[in-house]
């Protein structure tokens, strides 16, 4: 019984080798054919660069806010315009999903990887994998903490610390000549995320020298409306009638907080000053209704800059390590005038 089996195994050896060599020949032929077709395309399109489309793998955080949705939209549409083949993934706000997506881009050998890190830390191993595979990485919108800066090529995005300072300066300006104390309730973003850390630090930087301001409550609303509303409801009860200012790390949480303030029978924008970030459509609507006092812009429209940088990186040209997006501050008085030109 055993011998025929062994016979079969022995005879199988050469067959595999033959098969393999046949496949190799076939694949060589395929490569040749592909090269010829590619050459033909290049010739036909008379120098158009479409022959070798740049492949960009983009690992998005999720769709947690209107801001993020606008960001996704900007990346997708500018990729189409720039003729970049975009591989897009949505990590649903989980770092493990993002790491998985980046690994799959490395396996697919894309030309450039871009991603918005959901949190600052824990990226070192996967970035090393990308570096080992010689795939350049561009960070968008949020930074990472790594010991070795060469692990990423460039970081395109807002300066959250500066945004925080702007929010703080607006407050200092708004309360000019007013004697304190001014109690601030802070709605933080996702714990550990760069905007949450920097918008908090930016505010602290401005108000620490001014002892009228005091943060009396601070809690994470996870950048969502439901989170902002629930936290604000609790704040309004535990610090009844004390809160002067809500400092929300994004518009969605501010909108949630505004609902909670209204349900408590207070007037947001008047009884409680609402300072927010991002300047999304929802934020603008709240400002036009007089319920939000200021929204510090944080532009999600960084798709065009990303495509431009990706092309330069892929072509081996030098790019700046830090590219800051252009942004401004929108107090509610300017909201109505600026609203029609807003894209997100």
């Amino acid at each position: 019984m055993a011998s025929p089996n062994r016979m079969h195994q022995i005879s199988a050896g050469p067959t595999y080798i033959q098969l393999e060599s046949k496949m190799m020949q076939k694949s060589k032929r395929n490569v040749l054919a592909a090269l010829m077709i590619a050459a033909g395309v290049v010739l036909c399109s008379a120098g158009a660069q479409a022959a070798d489309k740049l492949v960009l793998g983009f690992a998005q955080v999720g769709a947690e806010s209107e801001w993020r949705t606008a960001n996704t939209e900007s990346v997708k549409s500018s990729a189409k315009e720039a003729g970049v083949e975009l591989k897009f993934s949505d990590a649903q706000q989980k770092q493990e999903n993002q790491i998985k997506a980046i690994r799959s881009y490395i396996a697919q050998k894309v030309d450039v990887i871009a991603f918005s890190p959901v949190v600052e830390s824990g990226w070192e191993p996967v970035l090393r994998e990308a570096k080992a595979a010689k795939i350049p990485v561009i960070l968008t919108d949020r930074a990472v903490k790594v010991s070795d800066d060469s692990l990423y090529t460039s970081f395109i995005g807002s300066d959250f610390l500066e945004e925080g300072r702007r929010g703080g300066r607006w407050l200092a300006d708004h309360y000019k000549g007013v004697t304190g104390p001014i109690a601030i309730a802070e709605l933080q973003g996702t714990v550990g995320s760069a905007p949450a850390i920097d918008r908090h630090n930016g505010l602290i930087e401005v108000i620490k020298s001014d002892d009228r301001f005091k943060i009396i409550a601070s809690q994470s609303g996870d950048f969502t409306r439901a989170g902002g509303k629930q936290v604000m409801e609790a704040f309004l009860k535990s610090h009844a009638k004390e809160i002067n200012v809500v400092y929300a790390h994004n518009d969605d949480m501010a909108i949630g907080a505004i609902q909670a303030i209204e349900e408590a029978g207070l007037k947001p924008g008047k009884d409680i000053i609402v300072v927010s970030f991002d300047a999304t459509k929802g934020g603008f609507q709240a400002m036009m209704a007089g319920k939000m006092n200021v929204s510090v812009e944080c532009s999600p429209l960084l798709g065009p800059q990303l495509m431009e940088t990706a092309k330069l990186v892929a072509a081996g040209k030098p790019v700046p390590k830090r590219i800051v997006t252009k942004e401004t501050v929108y107090p509610m008085e300017t909201a109505a005038a600026a609203f029609p030109s807003r894209k997100y």
Partner: peptide, 13 residues
């Protein structure tokens, strides 16, 4: 939930 926060969020609801 959707009525309370006046929106629906496929990711987080």
């Amino acid at each position: 939930i959707s009525s309370n926060v006046k929106s629906a969020d496929g990711n987080n609801a």
